[in-house]
Structure formats: structure tokens, C-alpha cells
Design a protein around this nucleic acid. Sequence first.
DNA 1: AAAATACTTGACGTTGACGTAAGGGTAAGG
DNA 2: CCTTACCCTTACGTCAACGTCAAGTATTTT
Lengths: 146, 146
Amino acid sequence: MRSYSIGELAKEFEVTPRALRFYEDKDLLHPTRNGMHRVYSYKDRGRLQLILQGKNIGFSLAEIRELLDVYNLEGPRVQMERMLERYQAQVVKLEKQRSDIDGALAQIKDHMKVIDDHLAKPSQETLRQERDRIFNSSNSAPKAAE
Amino acid sequence: MRSYSIGELAKEFEVTPRALRFYEDKDLLHPTRNGMHRVYSYKDRGRLQLILQGKNIGFSLAEIRELLDVYNLEGPRVQMERMLERYQAQVVKLEKQRSDIDGALAQIKDHMKVIDDHLAKPSQETLRQERDRIFNSSNSAPKAAE
DNA sequence: AAAATACTTGACGTTGACGTAAGGGTAAGG
DNA sequence: CCTTACCCTTACGTCAACGTCAAGTATTTT
């Protein structure tokens, strides 16, 4: 359970010290001080990890701040129920993002295959298109409406 | 295969006309004109859908623009191979995001369960914590290091 | 002792993705 | 004929998330 300087932590997670100070300014991190120097605990390191994960998923720092608050079990019972609702909303959001990603992946992979085929073994169709492009002879019957 | 005015499309996708004009300015959309008014085709509508999905997944408009270009099979063979590489990179990126989301979902759901239990049927442990908080009697043996 | 290194707090600059206000065109409805 | 409803372009404003100096402090290395 060691502690970290701002530089160490920044380097480990490949962010700048400026970013860490910014997160502190935005109330996402609360390192202690040794004199005037910031000291990050192991827990702070964990929080930073969560922050960066959150960013990666596309949350704003404000949203991440809320998530961190919830994650820390702050406040009395009544607040917790509100947090549960927020969590639920986040779950919905995340699951939508996930399905969006799945959709995007499917499309991309599908399209990659199309290009791949296109490059590897040009089909009759492809050849015909090529010929059409070269000789500009667009008099063959169109298969499907464009 | 109808066409749309900027307002119709904006309302359908819950964005502002300004956003659509902005996307056009950034070369993401290319509606035709009827006089000076923009006319969006069904294909344009599809592109817009892709744009918004991309945004949702956390891509910048610049990145989305590239994806759209690739998606449109523009350019000759040599370019396509470069695009395949980019696609591959995007796949990696997306799959990482997906696993990040899965991680986040797992954590959140786990934590929701903790809170839920905490609220529903306060366990012995919870009650002890409560008592400790109220009477400030922190002399019982700590189970795990915090 | 001087220089390099790592930290500090301001404070202004930057980029992306629009918002918003200003000024004007056109077509339908009362 | 005037208002309402959309549409247009131009241009400045805004907010998030830092980047980038500037100017100073403390420690360590040469």
C-alpha cells in the first residue's frame, strides 16, 4: 500500500500531471499533501483507473464524478436509493453503448469481408463493374435499384 | 425512398438543424439543394444514423468521417488496403471499449447488489457498522484491512 | 554554488462540437 | 397584406478537457 507522487502516477497511466491536477480541481481526486506536494494513495490510484476507464467509455468528467460518488457509498439511506436509480440509468446507457458497438463491429467486419473479397478474387460482378468503368458501357441490366 | 427537409430529419433524430449544417460543413453529409434549401435523401438519412451511432460510441466527427469514407468504398485498390488497416484498428478500439463497458457493467451491477442488500435486509455486519457509527464504539476486531 | 529535476499555483490559449444571435428569403394561411 | 413557419448564411459565444507558459519553491546532482 505505497503512495505515489503526481509524476509517478501520471507516467504509469500515461497522462500528464496537469490532467491529475485538473481532475482534482473537478473534485474527482483528493490526494493528501506532504507540505505542498500531492501524495496519492493506493485508493487514489484506483480512482484514477476508474476515471480513465470512464473516459474511455465516453463519459464526461461530470458523469464520472457522479459514478465515483456512488461507488464510494456516500450519504445516508435516502440518498442511496437515488443513487440506485442513477446506477440503473447508467446501466441502460452502457448497455445501449454496448449494443451500438456490437452493431458497429458487425457492420465493420461485414464490410471488411466485402472489401477483402473485392481485393482477393474479383468476382464476375466486380469484373463487369470494372469493365463498365473502363469502357463506360453502362448498358447491361441493373440487378438492383440503387 | 422519400426525401427530407433539414427540420424533419433533425426532429426525427432529436438533433438540431444547426448540427446537421455543422456535419455538412465538416463534410460528413452532402445533401442536395432545391434552390437554396437542403434536401436529404434516404441515403443521407442512413449516413446521419451512422454518424450519431459513431458519436454514441465515442468517436470524434473526424474519425466518423473516415469511417464513412471507408464505408462508401471510395478510391482505388491501394487506398482500400489502407482502409482495411484502419478498420482493423477500429475493431481493436471498439473491442477494447466493449470490454471496458463490460467491466463497468459488472462493477456497477455488483455494487448495486451490495447497496440493494444493504437497504433491504441489513445484515449483522451492516448493523454492527451502524452501531459503530452511532455509538462511535470502534473497538471490535477489524475483519479486513481497509 | 550552479544546474538540473520535480513539484507548486495561477492564468491564458486551444480544440471540438455545437449554441445563439443577427439579418434576410419564401410560401402558406388568416 | 401581414404574420407565422421554415429555411438560409455569417459570425461570434460557449463549454469541456485539458495544453502551455510563467514564475516560484524544494531537493538532488555535478
